[in-house]
Each structure stands twice: as C-alpha cells, then as structure tokens.
Design a protein around this nucleic acid. Structure first.
Length: 308
DNA sequence: AAAAGCTTCAACCGCGTAAAG
DNA sequence: ACTTTACGCGGTTGAAGCTTT
C-alpha cells in the first residue's frame, strides 16, 4: 500500500466504525458537537478529536469543517473589491498557492479563494477564449482589470465618505487616506484624488495590503461581518452603482461621472470608450456579452495582436 | 409552472511532507 | 534510518440554488 493509501486508511482506521462514518453535508447537530468540543478541548489531533467528540466523521472532515466554516473568525460572503484586487495580485505572484494567498486575506479560507478564482476568474478567461495561465490573460488582468478594481475601490471610498459605515470594517472600501498606492510588480497606481491612474515605476515591488495593518481588516471585522459584502467581482460590473453596507442595497452613485477605467490609462483606446457608448460605464449585471468583454477583447487584440 | 441549463461552494480525494515512534 | 501517523495543500466533484427558456 502506498503512502496515500496509508493516510487514507488512517483517517478511517476505526474499522468497527468504518461502516458508519458519515459523509456529505454536516448537520446542525454535528456542527454543534464539533464547536462545543473544540471550545472545551481546542483544535488539533483531528482523528482523536473526531472520535472523542463522538462524531462519525473522519478527522480530516472535522478539520475541514472547522477551518472552512465553523471557525469563529472565518469571513463568509462576497469577496470585496480590495480582496479581489489582492487575490489577483497575489495569484499573479504565487500562482495557485491558495493557502498562501489566504494568509493575506484575514478570515478568508483557501477554499473560498480557490472557488472564487475558479468560478469568476477562470470563467472570464474561458469567455475570452484564452488560457488563464497565458501571458495575454495575465496582462489583461494586470493592465485592465486590476486598474479597474483600483478605480472602483477609489470610487467606492469616495462615495462612501459621509455614508457612515462605508469605510468601516473590512467589508467595505478603505478610505482614500488608507489607499495611497497600489503596487504591482512593475508599476504603481497612484490613488490620490485624481480619478485616473498612471502606471509608475515600482518603488519597492511590495504588495500593498489594504486590510492587514488596519485592524478593521482583521478578525474584528470578520466577526462583525454577518451581513453580506458587496457583490462586485470582475464579472459583475456594477461600476455605476455603489453599495450600501447598511441595507445591502446598491444605489446609484450621486456625483459619479466616471470614465472608462481604461481611459487615461496608458493603453487608452480611441473609439471604444464605454461611457461614450451608453453613457453609463459598465452598466451591466453580468459579463456575458457586456462591455467587459468588448473592452477585454479590444485589449487582447491590440496589445498582443491576438485573436483571443 | 416546469424543465433545462448554469453557477456556486461545501465537501471529498489524492498527494506530499513533517513529526513522532 | 526507517516506518507510521497526522496534517495541510491543491484539485475535483456533486448537490443545491438560481436563472433562463
């Protein structure tokens, strides 16, 4: 038997109970049992924990349930703009190192980030008919999506001022004073009062952590994040809207007259400004056939001469 | 209203590796 | 030094919910 076989058997080694090991979704009772047991005895030693707690589960299953779901500091709900930006940045740096990426997103699990990547980002790559690992796609992320995200964060922060709560907690955009510079590998995006961003030579090559040094991005925010967070990922282009974390509604931005994020950027396109086309940048609910695609296709074709 | 298709995400699996014996 | 055990990571799956037709 190989190593894997051994491991697999170890988690299920209680032969007399093997037949009655439960699998699949956890029940409320099981959750309660696990929470209670860990509250009294702590984590770790998952196999014995499962046995001692009287759970008909493998240690592996208990560990996963606890880490990804029951842990008190786990954040659940929609990935915020800052988190999206961070995920894109860190993934471009580390690839599918989900747990490593998750370490920089307090309260988020590697599983959740992985799911986000697969369901949102990879889906988008698929729609653009390019490989998620291709240079084209990576550059599209870097030069198109990430600047957009930065601008959206900035816009959210701007409109959030005076809204109360819009800059509290990790679920919302940090204030503009928090966001100063977004560093990518080779360039920075200034996040001053200007709406446009100009790539600049990188200074330190580091990753700007929007949430980590701010206590609002830590576990405190996690525990208070029982309400959802903005539905605002790459594929849901509510750019013309803002999110009210209090009532969880989107509302039209009052003084927002944003141009395309690509406008003012170095690869500014002509004749493709989405604002010109419909007067409402990315006024769309989903990516399918929307302006993201048009923009992205344009970018891919002009930047690389690709027929992606 | 119902069926079909699609999306999301919790849970599982296989594997590598560190720690313990 | 070798074997066994435990843990953690990344990939994959499938059920449930949602959307579209």
């Amino acid at each position: 038997m190989d190593q894997h076989g051994k491991v697999s058997r170890n988690y299920n080694q209680i032969s007399e109970e093997e037949m009655e090991l439960r699998r699949g979704p956890w029940t409320v009772d099981e959750d309660f049992t696990l929470i209670n047991y860990i509250a009294h005895h702590g984590e770790g030693r998952w196999n014995s924990l499962a046995r001692c707690a009287g759970l008909k589960r493998t240690g592996k299953s208990c560990r996963l349930r606890w880490l990804n779901y029951l842990r008190p500091d786990v954040r659940r709900g929609n990935i915020t703009l800052e988190e999206q930006l961070l995920i894109l940045e860190l993934h471009s740096r580390w690839g599918n190192r989900w747990s490593k990426i998750a370490q920089h997103l307090p309260g988020r699990t590697d599983n959740e980030i992985k799911n986000y990547w697969r369901t949102r980002v990879q889906k988008h790559a698929k729609q653009l008919r390019c490989d998620v690992n291709s240079k084209q796609f990576k550059d599209t992320m870097r030069y198109l999506w990430m600047p957009r995200l930065v601008e959206r964060i900035q816009a959210a922060a701007a409109s959030g001022r005076g809204e109360g709560g819009a800059s509290t907690g990790a679920t919302t955009a940090p204030s503009s004073s928090t966001i100063t510079t977004y560093n990518q590998n080779n360039m920075n995006y200034n996040m001053g009062s200007s709406q446009t961003m100009v790539p600049q030579p990188n200074i330190d090559g580091g990753v700007q952590m929007y949430t980590s040094d701010n206590s609002s991005g830590g576990t405190a925010a996690a525990s208070s994040d029982s309400f959802g967070t903005p539905v605002s990922d790459l594929t849901e282009c509510n750019y013309s809207n803002n999110y009210n974390p209090v009532n969880q509604d989107y509302y039209p931005a009052a003084n927002q007259s944003l141009t395309s994020p690509t406008a003012g950027y170095h690869f500014n396109q002509t004749g493709m400004d989405c604002t010109e086309q419909n007067g409402n940048w990315m006024d769309c609910g989903d990516v399918s056939g929307n302006l993201w695609d048009v923009d992205d296709m344009w970018f891919l074709q002009h930047q690389f001469g690709s027929n992606a």
